[in-house]
Design a binder for these strands. Structure first.
Lengths: 222, 222
DNA sequence: GTCTATAGTTCGATAGAC
DNA sequence: GTCTATCGAACTATAGAC
């Protein structure tokens, strides 16, 4: 007998809750919070408009739910990597920064699961100063940021607290900028730069970030 | 006799056109294009709502006008610097990058003229993939970007075209990230990082960017 | 859980008087 | 150039039937 708790584990063809999140992610990324409308999200997700309020109450909580889903995935991967890295010895700065940047970049390139939409979304609120952006950043990304900054200082004792924070924020911002896939790199380079080559982007981001962090550590006014 | 062309050069207490741009800049920066409303902008600027349509026709053209005003100022300063730098000899990478990044950072810190609002705005559309953001980026910022990238290659012949483009975009993105003044650096560093110290931010951005660019140039798979 | 219907706002844009 | 008045459309959110 099939009761309510006998949910099949395979992906259902109609999973309203997930379909709403997916459509909302796209809409918020493409149109911004103010430009996206619940009506359009419902239409895109193939559900009734009232269903969105039933599951997520209002637009603000829907936005938080979108961020919560992806950030949980990214940050648990980063947490696991940090746990593993310091098990035996102190890793190199390159190994550490790759562990921090790769999960974000890879999810942004996971087009099959719509990751590029979340890439655009995270870029938009990471650098925004409005109250809603600050709220989700603080709730979903500050904890892993503090852990990452502490790890950077363990790997590079010469790094001051202030420079570690700056170096972390610089590194995140440049990794995010390539994730957004605006097509500008390809346009400016007449196609030489490929926004979709994950490994090349990881390598370039890590190389740039590590050199920059070392430069901060060796400033004269240190 | 005072005709229409005898405009006083001093700032008038009531300059509707400029007041509208200023209020629009703030609204677009704080609320996004979709979240900002013509009505609220008119109220903030102290003008009638119809005046905005009289001067700027519609919301899209108002947005372009906001970007056009500031980008003209930033890019003419960068153009002048580029013209002067290569007059005598080839400058160092540090001198070049400071000339490119400083105008942007300084305008973002010019609170007296409301520059921090434009800082938040430029960050939002620089990394956005929607059609409107792409349009203003391409029109107002791609020309100076191409000139800057060419200058970087002159200063560092070892830099490939692709790496010059990547290095430029990385550098711009990290400079913009500190301009946005989200307060996150201060929060994560418990006040050690000061978002408003222009000279320190310029120095850190230039040091980080130059080291990163050099790292791109010396990659093994070059 | 899913739907219809609708209340109650707010929006962009225009027409037309002055 | 400045204003009032307003149209028509879109929006968030809720109430209530099934």
């Amino acid at each position: 007998m099939l009761t309510q708790s006998d949910k099949p584990t395979r992906k259902q063809s109609k999973d309203s809750r997930a379909d709403i999140l997916q459509a909302a992610e796209r809409a918020f990324a493409d149109l911004g919070f103010g430009g996206a409308s619940i009506r359009a999200i419902a239409r895109e997700a193939g559900v009734n408009q009232a269903m969105i309020h039933y599951y997520y109450q209002n637009k603000d909580q829907l936005f938080s739910a979108v961020v919560a889903r992806r950030s949980g995935e990214i940050n648990s991967r980063r947490d696991d990597a940090l746990d593993a890295l310091f098990n035996d010895a102190i890793p190199s700065l390159e190994v550490l920064m790759e562990a921090l940047l790769r999960p974000t970049i890879e999810i942004g390139h996971d087009d099959a699961r719509g990751g590029s939409a979340y890439a655009r979304l995270i870029v938009s609120f990471n650098n925004a100063a409005d109250e809603r952006s600050q709220r989700v950043t603080e709730e979903y990304y500050d904890p892993i940021a503090r852990r990452s900054i502490a790890a950077m200082k363990r790997v590079m004792p010469a790094l001051s607290e202030a420079d570690a924070v700056r170096g972390y924020l610089f590194s995140i911002s440049l990794a995010l900028s390539v994730m957004a896939k605006t097509g500008r790199a390809a346009r400016l380079s007449q196609g030489l730069c490929d926004d979709s080559d994950t490994e090349e982007i990881v390598a370039n981001s890590v190389a740039f970030a590590c050199a920059g962090i070392r430069a901060l550590a060796s400033k004269k006014d240190n």
